[in-house]
Design a protein around this nucleic acid. Structure first.
Lengths: 224, 224
DNA sequence: TTATCAGATGCCCCTTAGGGCAATTGTGCT
DNA sequence: AGCACAATTGCCCTAAGGGGCATCTGATAA
């Protein structure tokens, strides 16, 4: 009890720090198990957010997710009263990339395991759960989440910048990325060479690149 | 019997054609099931190569793989006399990327399913197997195999070509890909500008690219 | 020993790229 | 009407890229 109380009053600073290490959403209907996970992940330096049901998770996940940033994963018991873990998985299907799901089950049929993996589940742990294996799995899931979030952010940033480009600028840049020279582009678009240069220059500035190599790499990553 | 006989006498041409559509290695100890799969995949236009045990597969897989090219997957019963499907999987772990494994099992424990996926298994089908699901799964696995083979071949080709590059040429190209200009490279390497140009030119020729964009894309793909 | 090849350079020439400066035109917003 | 901004273009100048031609050296293969 004392522990729980202490944890509930984590300062916002510590909460944010832990979140940066990793957020572990825990979903289990047994309060004792939730507490056990809580303490385990507390020791690991992660931020653990426990829920007692899929419904509760769906309700309160948004807000928690909203004001916290950091890699995350969901540790979820398969058998739950109400919406099962597998049903929840389908519900949050599109978020699995950024938040890998680790299922835990004691009495699962093979069908459930297959289903979980087929729907993109990250891992499936069978009870009794080996603590080290659990921590390893969580660690890998968080790393995966981190890299995907990173990738996603970069892509969004890029897209946002590309939006700032004028139609003309985009057209020129696309031809540049097609390997055409300025004179060729000026012919293709029926505009003066000087105009091509101006558009090219503006686009490069907006994209924050200073040479063709950087521009091409940007394109390879995000697709301009 | 007639069928089997007909199939065993596939002309080399037809065999190669089917292989291009996809090679399905089938591993099951039940001759009847092997025949059933054989006929099924024959209808789909794939080349089906059945084996009765892991040991037989390991023995004869090399030669079959050697003179045939095309996307491939392994359809494998989990429970086999002798080496089990899961043990076989570990044996050919490094080939799973180019040859995804689809496990089939009637009486699997959850542990086996988890193990199969953890080791990189592509899919796990539970008996009774739905034919359409099986065909879909095989189709996806073959597509995956194809794209990976393709990727791998490109990478190998690139590496082979990079080997042809002189040390000096590689050094210059790397700096080019770092965004340096020829004059900067000449300073960095303490060589004349003309020399830089020559190396750069030779390298571009060997790599088969005609401009900086193509060169950068090559580098992004394979890492020069 | 001789042929060959990578490495290195100088000279020279032409094409591209990058940009400053200035001017025009059209459009949407105040 | 007037401003801001995108699109265009001309003129001009410097820097960088691409490449032909020729030379020279050192190492390696025949």
């Amino acid at each position: 009890m004392t522990n729980v109380k202490k944890l509930r009053t984590l300062s916002q600073v510590e909460e944010a720090e832990r979140a940066n290490q990793g957020i572990v959403f825990v979903l289990d209907d047994d309060p004792g198990i939730r507490t056990a996970y809580y303490r385990l992940f507390e020791l690991e330096g992660y931020l653990c957010l426990p829920y007692e049901s899929s419904e509760a998770f769906l309700l309160r996940f948004e807000e928690a997710s909203g004001h916290l940033s950091g890699p995350r994963c969901l540790l979820c018991d398969v058998s739950l009263p109400g919406m099962s873990g597998l049903e929840l998985q389908r519900e949050i299907r599109d978020q699995q990339a950024a938040m890998p799901i680790i299922f835990i089950s004691g009495a699962s049929s093979e069908v459930e395991v297959v289903e979980a993996y087929k729907e993109g589940g990250h891992a499936f742990l069978l009870k009794p759960v080996d603590i080290d294996e659990l921590l390893d799995t969580v660690s890998v899931a968080l790393a995966l989440s981190k890299s995907r979030q990173c990738e996603q952010r970069e892509l969004e940033t890029l897209k946002a910048i590309v939006t700032q480009l004028t139609d003309r600028e985009k057209a020129v840049i696309r031809l540049v990325l097609n390997g055409l020279t300025n004179p060729q582009i000026s012919e293709r678009l029926h505009i003066a060479l000087r105009t091509v240069k101006v558009h090219r220059q503006h686009a490069m500035e907006k994209l924050g690149v200073s040479n063709l190599v950087e521009l091409t790499r940007l394109d390879e990553r995000g697709g301009i």
